[in-house]
Nucleic acid binder design. Structure first.
Length: 238
DNA sequence: GCGACAG
DNA sequence: ATCTTGTCGC
């Protein structure tokens, strides 16, 4: 009676679009008020031409952005990658990864877009609507909307526009590198997503939650980390 | 009709 | 997403 439905493998795109339209009603873009203690990065990794996907969520302490725990799940998908429908391929495994975390993170930063999507239902919005969690998207490339190049300084940004509406931001997360594309997914506002992304910008292009998730999930795929939920001991911090 | 197109 | 060497710029 509370199970999250993520049986997506046999859907066609028309059915997938219906699900997106239905799920969109659950999205809440009001400001997030409570103080943030932990933020998680979520990402997946796979071998080319393989249906096996390696999903991971890494939880970081918000104060210093150090990883404190991670959850890894190996799963299988037959849903292909189709621009605009990424969630149907990656979300089921990420939901599994979330389910095995005993204490959920306050916010999740997901690799991909939030509402900066043709139907406002990028993977971060989809995941947030499905799980009821606080989510935002951080993508390396634009999918939908018009944007202008931000200034070259770290922290410079410009809005992603659809007609007259702001749907996200192109953010210079590191000096003189390509921007990342930020948008809210669920239970936070546009400016919340921008503030959090800026706060999470470290010494690399990818904000720390996303960067760490990518790192851990690749270590998992290449056999250096094991499936399951694990906590990092303070002295063994990566 | 044509081009664009998260991971 | 992943496969990969060199190379250009700071």
């Amino acid at each position: 009676m509370n199970d999250i439905i993520t049986d997506y493998d046999d859907l066609n795109l028309a059915e997938a679009k219906e699900i997106q339209n239905k799920l969109r009603e659950k999205i809440n873009l009001e400001p997030f008020t409570k103080p943030i203690q932990t933020i998680a990065g979520a990402d997946i990794s796979l071998n080319r031409f393989s249906e096996i996907i390696f999903a991971g969520i890494v939880i970081l302490r918000y104060s210093d952005l150090q990883p404190i725990a991670y959850s890894l799940v190996e799963s299988k998908t037959s849903f292909p990658y189709v621009p605009g429908f990424l969630a149907f391929r990656e979300v089921p495994a990420l939901v599994q990864a979330l389910e095995q975390i005993p204490v959920k993170p306050d916010v999740l930063m997901i690799d991909g877009h939030g509402i900066a999507h043709p139907r406002r239902m990028g993977i971060a919005a989809h995941f947030g609507a499905l799980t009821g969690t606080v989510t935002m998207g951080c993508a390396k490339n634009i999918l939908f909307g018009k944007w202008q190049e931000p200034g070259i300084q770290k922290g410079d940004y410009r809005p992603i526009m659809n007609k007259e509406e702001v749907i996200g931001y192109a953010l210079r997360s590191k000096f003189k590198t390509n921007p990342v594309f930020i948008s809210p997914g669920n239970r936070m506002s546009l400016s919340d997503s921008l503030d959090i992304a800026i706060r999470c910008a470290g010494n690399y292009r990818l904000p720390e939650p996303t960067r760490r998730a990518h790192e851990f999930v690749n270590l998992f795929r290449t056999g250096k980390l094991k499936e399951g939920y694990h906590e990092l001991t303070p002295q063994l911090l990566f």
